[in-house]
Amino acid sequence: MTELDSEPVLEVRDLHTHFFLRRGVVKAVDGVSFSLHKGEVLGLVGESGCGKSMTALSVMRLLPKGSARTVQGRVLLHGEDILTRSPREMREIRGSQISMILQDPQTSLNPVFTVGEQLREAIFHRTHGRNKDVMREAIEALRRVDIAAPEQRIGQFPHQMSGGMKQRVVGAIVMSGQPGVLIADEPTTALDVTIQLQYLKLLQRLQRETGMAILFITHDFGVVARMCDRVAVMYAGRIVECGTVEQVFENPSHPYTRALIASVPKMTGPIERLYTIEGQPPSLMDLPVGCRFAPRCPHAEQRCHDIYPPAFAVETGHDAHCWMLEAE
């Protein structure tokens, strides 16, 4: 499982990614730090617009062209900063060392090529092998992601497959590069519940077989509970709480984490009125100086509005940015 003592395979330090628009600067990612160790699954949870996907795209160096720029911070992959690499070097790193699965398999596969052509391209890029060997490996890769009759499926186009199957093909393409780090950005959000469970189990099996590390981006605490070793909760561009899944679920220490967990309807127990968080997240163009959750927080005091709280340790390996935790 988690090898916390080992060197992290991916380390993000004080990452800032901003959008420069005519109307102002949108601070989508505003000081994010975390580390991902070999064989570990780290969940990055938060609501839309909290910056979780932008964090992933910054790490992959795939930010939308034009307005978005990473203005500060370091992204260390196996100890080397990839933010300073040239676009050409990045192309080599992507796919072979770090890969990504997106939410919608429909948009990650090219509709005019067969899945076999797309998979073989990825394999050939790594092995430069003979046609026959590449083909054999491609069929094997499809079998590994539980696609029945891969010999027939390999000649099909994406539109001939169901959503779950397409996402498994994407998984096969990603795994063919044998990356050490995988970023999965809401990979099951577009899938049906029974298919979601199938896919999560598949990812878990592949992760155990290869020992790769996964950064799992999601808004669903159920997915985190099922998949992750550690979890980081994001709010308005920053991580507000981080710890092992057990620590964060048993003892959520940031009021935002607590509220998020409490507002989800449960499958057991009495049916009560749901807990709600009043108001809306702050605009990323006009962030409060103090704690970003303070305007919605039931426990906020003057200090919360004035100064951003530093990380306070709740336990070893579990910390949260909240003034309530000071000197306890």
């Binding site: 029945a148 169901s162 779950g164 199957m165 049906d192 519940v193 029974t194 298919i195 979601q196 469970l197 199938q198 999560l200 189990k201 669903d220 605490f221 159920g222 997915v223 985190v224 509970a225 099922r226 899944v245 057990e246 679920f249 048993e250 989800v264 449960k266 499958m267």
Partner: peptide, 25 residues
């Protein structure tokens, strides 16, 4: 039963008695 089993747990647990349906609808 399979639908209920696919509901992800509200708390971390790694019990493996899930009913995972094979294939698609």
């Amino acid at each position: 039963k399979a639908l209920f089993s696919a509901v992800l747990p509200p708390r971390p647990n790694r019990q493996e008695d899930e009913i995972v349906l094979a294939g698609d609808v």
